[in-house]
Structure formats: C-alpha cells, structure tokens
Design a protein around this nucleic acid. Structure first.
Lengths: 229, 229
DNA sequence: CGAGGGAACATTGGATCCAAATTAGCATAG
DNA sequence: CTATGCTAATTTGGATCCAATGTTCCCTCG
C-alpha cells in the first residue's frame, strides 16, 4: 500500500495541501465514490476537507493532467466517460508498458517481496467479494513493479490503472466469476516466471494476460455504457 | 505545428489562463530558455505574462504532473535534472510506446499527410543548423503520429519527447554531424514503410531507430552532466 | 579570521474578495 | 399549454491580501 501511496500521486515529495486534496479526490474516484460523468464542485470539496478553494483548484489541475478529470472552461471539472475504443487503446498501452516495467523491476525484487507476492496471490484465490478481488488484483500487479526504479515509468503504469479502475469494476460485475479462474491461472504462470527471474517469459505471460483481459473486456460493451450522447 | 500545439498540453479544450501560462512555460523549457536545475519564480512568470500568481501556480501543478518540473514544498518549482539512467529508461519507454502510436496512426494518415511527411524529411536532409534540425526531427516524428486518435496515447508520447528535449540538444552538440546521416537513412526506411502502410515493418524500423539513438546517447555521458551532487 | 546566531528580506502557501460566465427559474407571449 | 426571453442565483475564474517558511546578510563572539 505504501507503494501505491507513494506512486499514485506525483512521486516522492511534499505534503502540500494541493496534493492532499488531489489524493483525496483520486481515492474518491478510484473507489467509485465519484463516477464518470459526475461533476466535482470546488466548494464542496473545499468544505469537506476544511480548506479553501485554492488548493482544490490546484488539485483539479493535477488530476486533469493525470487524465482522471476533464475540465470545461467556466463549467468546472468532472470525471470523463471513456469510450470502448479509449479503453481498448489504454489496454494496448498497458500491454506494451507493463512488460517493460516488469523487466526493469524483476532484477531488483527481494526474496521478501517474492514471498509477499505469493501470499497476495493466495489471498486473491480465496473466495472474496468482487470489490476486494479488484483491490487485491491491483495490489498484486503493482507490487510486481515495486523493483522498478524509475519514477516516470511507475507513475505512468499507475495512472493507466487509475483511469481504467471504474470500468474494471463494471466489467467484473457483468462478467461471470469464472473469469477469476482464468485470471488466477495466469497469475500463477506469471508469478512462476518472476520467481525464476525469467524476464522474457514473464513479459510474455504478462502481455498475454493483459491482452486477453482487453479482448474479454471488449466483449462486454454493456459494462461501460457512456452518457446518452 | 498545430498538432503540437493541440497535443503538447492537455489535449483539446480550454484557453483558460492556467493553460496559457503552462504553454508559455512549456515552450520556455523546451526551447532551452529554462534549463535543468533552474528555478521558476512564480512572480517573475506572473509579471511577464501580465497575470496574477494564481494561474501561474495552477500551471506549475500541471507541469509538475507532466514531469517537466519538480516541486519542493515552500521552496518552489524548478526543472529537474535527469540522470543517465532516467534518460535511458525514457528511451526504452519510447521504444515500446511510439511503435504502438504509429500502428494506431498509420491507417488514418491521409495522402496529403504522407506527402507532407516526405517534404519534412527533405527539409531535414537539407544542411541546417543543429537547432533547426532538432525542431524538424521532432516535427517529423510527431507528425507520423497524427493519425492516432486516442488523446491519452498521443499525450504520453509528446510528454516523453518533452522531458528529453534538453538532453537531445546537449547530445547533438557533442555528437558529430555524422549522426545526421544515420538518422536520415533510418527516417527514409521508416517513411517508406509508412507509405506502404506496412505497420509491422514501420514498427520494427521505429523501434530500432529509437533503440539505436538510446544506445548512441548513452555513449555520451558528458552530454548530460547533472548538478554537482 | 572564521563560525554561529539573529534579524531583515524574499518567496511560497493559503484565504478571502470581486468579476465573469453559466445555469435555472419564472414570467410572458404566441 | 408550450416555447422563448429575461432575470436571479449559483459556480467558476482571477486578483489581492496575509501568514508561514526559507534565505541571505551582517553582526558578534570565540
């Protein structure tokens, strides 16, 4: 979790108010509390966090640059709807970027971290609710990138995950629980390659994992119905 | 140039002051006017643009999220130094992302755009100064991605280019003019594949082009000496 | 002469205030 | 009864003001 906390935002530094607000909003969006299409009123946020509107405005600019919100002049910020095509391309990006992150990470993973990964996968296989499954799955994948030293790369990966979070949830709701069997099997293959420190094999498994998820997702257009355009 | 202007920042919308300021600062950084390590005083910028400090602060948050500046609490913003390792990984990212952008772009490139690309490459081959060469080279590559419909992807590509801009300049200064021959040859191969709409071949040429540039760049550590740490 | 401390200055962080733009509601005309 | 135009309220955009933090320069003491 610390990994996420560190990397979700902008990297290393600062506890300035803007970033605290940004973290708050990010969490709210990722948890689904604020869904696509929903508007974000500056004063609401300011009031809830006991701050003035200024840090909120800065935070919104940050989230906008991260792609988590969109900004309409004089109309305010809101969480954008992604089209199926958008989603598809985001997964294609992940398909190329995450294997790289993994390759950069694997050599630096400690034995402790490998055991932790194994333990996490064990928890994923336990019979939990959808919500927890998604959380753990996310945690698992991001943890495989823990060894990646370059902030810029980790940041991009996390942001890609962030922008798809809402649709993962929607997708899991319509797709059957059988998906989880497939995912678990693929995770085990991936984990095995990581533990052998076989970067080529790990990359291949990961790319396949993401690709198959993307294809599966594109079969459920009802999962991300946008607004009535 | 319109392509850049549209995509350099955050995508489509808005001419709000924050974004105008962000554009100004971005240009200043990319042109080398503000170099790595240099500090950015809010009031200086505000005064120069005839605005108040508030839009400047928002702009700095945007640039921070883009990775163009770093922010130290109570100390202000500055352009960060990149280590050779950072640069290296950024090029590795480009090596994976840009071929994807190209693949997404090629089917949508019009005949006019293809001719424009050819014309651009012609200008690159003309005997110009280093500065203009870098500008044209950038314009050439970004133009090959014009057909890519997904903002998120184009944005990532442009941001990667942005963060390396200063070091490309420094590198070209130390590397001989002979580099340009190699680059031109590679561009021609790439262009040929694009005109044949052969995405596989185009991807291969592009990935190789970037990879070779990265390796060449890593041979010149003196090109990006950071601050005395 | 050098090191440490303190005061004045400079710069960033945050809050409040005012202006501009959009939205919603209401009244009126067709 | 519906549609259109006007007015009022809400909300964002921008500027100024004040507080907190950091920095610099000078003075004093060892």
């Amino acid at each position: 979790m610390t990994v996420q906390a560190q990397r979700t935002g902008n990297g290393v530094q600062t506890n300035a108010a803007s970033h605290r607000v940004a973290d708050y909003l990010r969490t709210a969006i990722l948890s689904g509390e604020i869904g696509p299409g929903e508007r974000i009123r500056q004063e609401d946020v300011a009031e809830r966090l006991g701050a003035s509107r200024l840090p909120v405005r800065e935070a919104l600019r940050i989230l906008e640059a991260e792609g988590l919100t969109e900004h309409l002049p004089n109309k305010g910020a809101r969480v954008p709807w992604l089209s199926m095509q958008d989603l598809n391309v985001i997964y294609k990006i992940r398909e190329r970027l995450e294997p790289l992150a993994l390759t950069e990470s694997i050599p630096n993973l400690s034995g402790t971290e490998l055991r932790e990964l194994d333990r996490l996968q064990g928890r994923i296989e336990a019979d939990t609710g959808i919500s927890e499954f998604l959380t753990l799955d996310r945690e698992f994948h991001l943890m495989t990138y823990t060894g990646c030293q370059v902030d810029q790369l980790s940041m991009m990966v996390v942001r890609l995950w962030n922008s798809t979070q809402h649709y993962r949830r929607a997708f899991m709701n319509v797709s059957g629980a059988s998906r989880r069997w497939v995912i678990n099997a693929e995770h085990r293959l991936l984990l095995d390659a990581i533990e052998r420190r076989d970067v080529v094999d790990a990359e291949r498994h990961l790319a396949g994992h993401i690709r198959r998820t993307r294809i599966e997702l594109s079969r459920h257009p009802e999962a991300f119905e946008g607004p009535i355009v």
